[in-house]
Design a protein around this nucleic acid. Structure first.
Lengths: 130, 130
DNA sequence: ATAACTGCAAATCTTTTGCTTACAG
DNA sequence: CTGTAAGCAAAAGATTTGCAGTTAT
């Protein structure tokens, strides 16, 4: 793997937030000003195909861009608040159970799972109608 | 509601498949050749905001377009086969249970849920490595 | 040498917007 | 009348691609 790719992977792994391609590029450029947008996209495609990262839409809460995160041991749900834009995560054994059930009952071989929820977070429920 | 909107809603409701905006426009034009792309998009936005339709990405199996379907009583999972492109649906009480659990434990008020799975359908598992 | 990676610029694709006219309540 | 809807054309935004030069195996 090349230095540029290592840099990108490192950024994704270290990031506490979910990055979109533009932001990833922006951060990467602080360390390598010459890195190009195309390289970012090509690397993301590669990592996605290898199953090293997950791609999210976060309910298109902010346009059509995609967000990325390093694959974790445990799949989790992403909740996006339509009011404040906060993204929360949620993992549970019920989720794992549901996945197993899907495989068992449909015979589908799961490679990627995405569970996204849109709505209002606890704080935004008081005082907002949207 | 105007005639054009009624037409679009009717098409979405009657369609057995998941429609993207372009296809919806194409179908609508058979009955009203003057309908415009912008009208389709504006209507979709309106229906989405009113919670009458759900928007899907189907794991971006075919580019970045969005797919739409009339909201059903029961939320269901969409499984997209990376090989043959088939889209399958799956609803179960476990899914409903998971939703309830999320609400209960996180206090998040759910407005929309999207559970998408990418992988290989039963038929495509034999004989393919992708 | 051969294959994979990169930058650059241009192209693509889907979705959105501004503006003007037409229609509905 | 006054607000909403529609057509048209252009804009916007994210992602992809062709090509030529570079680097790594």
């Amino acid at each position: 793997m090349t230095a540029q790719r290592r840099l990108l992977v490192g950024i994704i792994q270290d990031s506490p937030r979910h990055l979109d391609a533009a932001r990833l590029l922006e951060i990467a450029r602080k360390q390598d000003p010459d890195i190009d947008r195309a390289t970012v996209y090509r690397t993301l495609a590669l990592l996605k195909n290898r199953g090293l990262i997950d791609e999210l839409d976060l309910m298109h809460i902010e346009g059509e861009k995609h967000y990325y995160e390093a694959k974790t041991n445990r799949d989790h749900c992403h909740m996006a608040c339509f009011r404040c834009g906060a993204i929360m995560e949620y993992a549970s054994s019920s989720f794992e159970k549901l996945k197993k059930e899907i495989v068992k009952q449909s015979g589908f071989q799961i490679r990627v799972v995405r569970l996204e929820v849109g709505g209002f977070c606890k704080r935004c429920q008081k005082g907002s109608t949207l």
